[in-house]
Design a protein around this nucleic acid. Structure first.
Length: 669
RNA sequence: GCGCCCGUAGCUCAGGGGAUAGAGCGAGGGAUUCCUAAUCCCUAGGUCGCAGGUUCGAUUCCUGCCGGGCGUACCA
């Protein structure tokens, strides 16, 4: 569904890059100028790369390999001619011609280290762009959240954190589809299956959402036995859209109850929102009517009189090359029975997100908000007077799995066909592949599988079949697992601390797991993998920071500088004549210096796996450092101080990097 | 049918026009009077799905095949 690379989410020019890349940029410019001077040609893009290891240099330029053809000279000869010019650039201590003709640059490590210590993990500063709206989570409020929803929420929340780190103003929205077919199914379930009223269920079951998970699967089975119930579902849907009747009230109540559970589930992972826009309000406040009018005025929708779409209002996509692949070029926005499809409502919603609809929701505080994190929900009743202003964003990310790429394209096309081409260009479908279940996993869940199922590489989760791993169940498993690991190492630990650490480790394990896969890869979910705390996992990363923290604690305990003294120590060190740090230590510093670039690149590519990977690389680099270089018992005071500062640089960088992933660091584990 | 995604070590995955293709798990071997062994070090393991093309150079770009997944709804 996606182009191979997303259309570049263009980040307006970085006017201040992190220290490493800033230096790198200067050298790229200087090298380009030298090429013009020596050879009288304008070179292609001069880009630095990283040499395989730091003993070869800190930056490597392959440009001479490309110039060889143009200049008809050997790459090494060209590199040799440029070597002195590059060596004279500020921040460069040495240049070597290596391999086939690489120009390898050694940086002044002390200069770099000084800047890093002054601002560890600092982001590149970006030109202000205005509000960015990120929509994620968006779970149908008719059942418990499952691990597929977790991938969505974790990707979305990480994107939000990355954007905020880059200095963006972000508004997080979690759209509540409370008038959709799936909620109607649940209403049919409560009406026709032998279950207590919702209020009673809520009293008797701690997990109302989990109860509905089962009920939803039972309704699906019931439709097979009593097909006439499907007509009832249609009626229910109609009544829900009308509002102001008992059926609609039941639906609203059910959706609200389940949303509260979803919010609680996500809160366990430190995922929150600013606004819950409700679909019912889009209807009640006539958002669709308004969007529909605009679309008709532009001739962007047509009423169809004949054929299978007779009686519907559709958007015709035939003339658009983007949709050349679609067999049926008409996308229905208004059904023949007069109700609006999700895509129709989504067009209205998207217009509102950009402030193009000319009308607004009313707002009230959600009952589950907290002083530190206000949460608002839309309403069509009287709103509160002091609500902040929502919507009217400059850029919009919709975090939605790639199975919905086609309707997302229709939404964007809707904007474009109304003449809002700039906004269409700033509408980003942040697409990712689904989470499926391995066959082993499905068996562990006790699912009975068909032969067809067993022939597949993995199974798509299905709410209708009740096939899936619930988010809360997985979290419970992770917390339990974490608690037992911590207890093994700290048998004396009190319950309260243990619970806190176990929760932190569980969040770290889960969030790391969901982020380590690039978004175009289907995750075939497997319990053993997600429950692993060794190797490339969240707990491994946390462990490295805990160790760093321990070193610094022991430094303080042995009469050395305390955490609060370290800035002063860095300051003092900054002004002292210092030898260049050796390669093994420098590698750690260099990795720390890359965070800002890594995040900027991750946002540009909408690829949050880059952040996870970098966190792992940082942890791994530190682990190597930890084993090779004693800090407390360093040979001399200069070395000891430098290492203390390096450990602190690592610690502070990791705190920021892990915070981007929504993970806190425990004091011990 | 058409479109999109995936195919890299036994398994799970990174990477990406150029320096010996990387990591984790698993397998084998080693390290703990020393800052937590949730760690570290070493070894084995790869015609980067297949075939063409572009290029000084392709695992990476292009084309065509093969295998798998998803989409192509008056569900979302």
């Amino acid at each position: 569904m996606l182009p191979r690379r997303l259309p570049a989410v263009n980040i307006p020019h970085l006017w201040r890059k992190p220290v490493l890349s800033r230096l790198q940029q200067e050298i790229e410019k200087g090298l380009a100028a030298a090429i013009v001077r020596r050879f009288g040609i304008q070179p292609p893009a001069v880009d630095a790369s990283l040499p395989p290891d730091t003993t070869l240099g800190d930056l490597a330029f392959p440009i001479c390999l490309q110039l060889a053809r143009i200049l008809k000279k050997s790459p090494r000869e060209i590199a040799g001619a440029l070597k002195e010019d590059v060596a004279a650039l500020p921040g460069v201590t040495r240049v070597e011609v290596a391999g086939a003709g690489y120009l390898n640059v050694f940086l002044d490590r002390v200069v770099v280290l000084r800047s890093l210590l002054a601002d560890p993990g600092g982001p590149p500063a970006l030109a202000d762009e205005g509000k960015i709206i990120v929509e994620h989570t968006n779970i149908n409020p008719n059942k418990a959240a499952h691990i597929g929803h977790l991938r969505n929420a974790i990707l979305g929340d990480t994107l939000v954190r990355a954007l905020r780190y880059l200095g963006r103003q972000v508004e997080v929205q979690n759209y509540i589809d409370d008038t959709g077919v799936q909620v109607a199914d649940l209403v049919v379930g409560f009406e026709n299956l032998d279950v207590p009223a919702p209020a009673v269920v809520a009293r008797e079951h701690e997990h109302f959402d989990s109860f509905c998970w089962d009920l939803y699967a039972r309704v699906t089975a019931l439709y097979k036995e009593q097909p006439e119930l499907k007509a009832r579902r249609g009626e229910v849907l109609h009544r829900m859209e009308e509002g102001g009747n008992a059926t609609a009230d039941l639906a609203t109540d059910l959706a609200a109850r389940i949303v509260r559970h979803h919010l609680a589930t996500m809160a366990r992972l430190d995922i929150g929102y600013d606004l819950l826009p409700r679909e019912s309000d889009i209807l009640r406040l006539k958002f669709w009517a308004r969007a529909f009018k605009l679309l008709r005025a532009r001739g962007a929708v047509q009423r169809i009189d004949t054929g299978k779409n007779a009686g519907c209002w559709v958007m015709d996509l035939a003339d658009d090359p983007e949709f050349a692949d679609i067999a049926d070029t008409q996308k229905v926005l208004v059904r023949s029975n007069g109700t609006v499809t999700y895509t129709g409502k989504d067009i209205a919603y998207q217009l509102w997100k950009f402030g193009l609809l000319g009308c607004d929701f009313r707002y009230r505080r959600h009952e589950d908000d907290s002083p530190g994190r206000p949460l608002w929900v839309t309403t069509s009743d009287r709103g509160e007077n002091h609500a902040p202003s929502f919507g009217a964003g400059h850029r919009v990310y919709n975090v939605i799995d790639s199975r919905q790429a086609y309707p997302q394209k229709v939404v964007t096309k809707g904007l474009a066909s109304l003449g809002f081409t700039a906004e269409a260009g700033r509408s980003h479908h942040f697409a990712y592949e689904m989470v499926a279940l391995t066959l082993d996993c499905a068996k562990e869940l006790g699912m009975d599988l068909t032969d067809e199922d067993r022939a597949r590489p993995y199974l798509e989760m299905s709410g209708r079949r009740g096939l899936g791993v619930k988010a809360d169940d997985l979290m419970d498993l992770l917390v339990e697992r974490a608690a037992s690991e911590v207890l093994k190492r700290h048998p004396e630990m009190d319950r309260k601390e243990l619970d806190g650490i176990a929760r932190t480790l569980a969040v770290g394990a889960l969030r790391y797991f969901m982020l380590r896969f690039t978004r175009n890869r289907v995750i075939a979910f497997d319990f053993d993998e997600v429950l692993s705390f060794e190797g490339e996992t969240g707990p491994y990363a946390l462990y490295s920071v805990v160790r760093a923290t321990n070193i610094l604690r022991k430094v303080a305990e042995s009469g050395g500088p305390r955490l609060s003294d370290l800035p002063a120590l860095a300051e003092q060190w900054l002004t002292t004549e210092t030898p260049q740090p050796p390669a093994g230590e420098w590698t750690l510093a260099r990795e720390c210096g890359r965070l800002g670039d890594v995040v900027a690149e991750s946002v540009e590519k909408c690829e949050m796996a880059g952040i996870a990977r970098h966190v792992f690389t940082l942890a791994q680099t530190f682990s190597t450092f930890y084993h090779r270089f004693p800090v407390l018992t360093a040979a001399d005071e200069t070395t000891r101080q430098r290492r203390i500062l390096l450990v602190d640089l690592f610690r502070r960088t990791m705190l920021r990097a892990l915070d981007l992933m929504g993970v806190q660091v425990p004091a011990r584990m």
